[in-house]
Simulated assay, not measured.
Amino acid sequence: MKVILSALGIAVLSAAIARAQEPTPMTLHEQPQSLPELVFADEAGEPRSLEDWRGKVVLLNVWATWCAPCRAEMPTLDRLRERLGGERFDVVALSVDRAGARAVRKFFDEIGVGIPVFIDQDGAAIRSLRLFGLPATLLIGPYGNELARLAGPAEWDAAEMVAFFEGIIERELEETGVRR
């Protein structure tokens, strides 16, 4: 009887662990949240802000090269950007590496990621967005409001996630009347 109960317990635990590792879409806020102004730099050192993506749904991922889960999820963000990126959606990977854009470019080149380099060397994004760890990802609507937030890594190109983002893109751009 003990063997059966132990086996049953292991099976239940295994199923729970498997479910916890499955990709889950971000939970949308009941109401979109306003965001503080966020200024950062591109690879050439030119100032950028989220206003540059106005009219698009944006997945803003705040990360660093020294963060192991951040490094692991970067290829999935790149594949999501390749699949859905364009006039209506984009992925912005904002590094908070103090080492600067060169460290990020070197990492991207090593793993074959084509995401543009954006850098926030002084960590202002972490403070102004009130983030409590990395990676942290915000889903931003076409008017620059925060629709959802996820703390921790995700498998961004999983079928369930892609379907979730496709639905959000359609809904947001239809509701707001921004670019179809």
Rank of each mutant, 00 (worst) to 15 (best):
L5I: 15
A7T: 11
L8F: 11
I10G: 09
V12S: 10
L13Y: 04
L13N: 04
S14P: 06
A16H: 08
A16M: 13
R19E: 14
E22C: 03
M26P: 04
H29A: 03
Q31H: 10
P36A: 02
E37L: 12
E37A: 13
L38K: 00
L38Q: 04
A44F: 07
R48A: 01
S49R: 03
S49T: 14
V58E: 06
L59C: 00
N61P: 07
P69A: 04
R71I: 12
A72N: 13
A72L: 12
E73V: 05
P75Q: 00
D78N: 12
R79G: 03
E82S: 11
E82W: 02
F89D: 02
D90H: 11
V91Q: 05
V91K: 05
L94P: 02
V96C: 07
G100C: 08
A101D: 10
R102P: 12
R102C: 08
R102G: 13
A103W: 01
D109I: 03
E110G: 08
G112D: 00
V113G: 05
P116E: 00
F118Q: 06
F118K: 02
D122I: 05
D122M: 07
G123N: 00
R130F: 10
R130I: 13
F132N: 15
G133Q: 08
L134E: 13
P135H: 07
A136P: 08
A136D: 14
A136S: 15
L138K: 02
I140D: 03
G141P: 00
G141D: 07
A148F: 02
R149C: 01
L150E: 13
A151T: 15
G152L: 08
E155F: 08
D157S: 05
D157A: 04
A158W: 01
A159G: 09
F164H: 11
F165L: 15
R171I: 04
R171P: 06
L173R: 12
E174A: 14
E175P: 07
R180L: 14
R180G: 13
